[in-house]
Amino acid sequence: MQIYIVEAVLLIFLILITCAVIFCKDILSAAIIYSGFSFCAVLLYLMMGSPDVAFTEAVIGTISTIFFVASLRKIDRWCK
C-alpha cells in the first residue's frame, strides 16, 4: 500500500515540475528544473520494474541538461 503513496507523490512531483518548466521565465532555470523531471522519471521507471530504461533515462537526462546549457550561449537567457 505504501508503494502506491510513494508513486503518487512522484507523479505529483512530475506534474509540478512540468508546470514550473512551462511557466518559468528564466531559460537557464528551466533547464536545471528539467533535470529534476528526469530524476523523478528515473525513480518511477525503477518502481515499475525496468532498471534498463531507468539507467538510460539517468544518463540521457544528464547529457540533455549539458546540451541545453551549452545552447544557451547563443540565445537570450530571459524570455519576454
Binding site: 532498471p51 534498463d52 531507468a54 544518463v59 544528464t62 547529457i63 549539458i66
Partner: peptide, 21 residues
C-alpha cells in the same frame, strides 16, 4: 545486468563532455 552498448557509449561520452566543460 542492465545496460548495453547505448548506455556504455553515453557514459563514456559524459567523461569527455565534463572534461570540455
Amino acid at each position: 545486468s542492465p545496460g548495453g552498448g547505448f548506455q556504455a557509449g553515453a557514459l563514456l561520452a559524459v567523461g569527455v563532455l565534463l572534461a570540455r566543460l
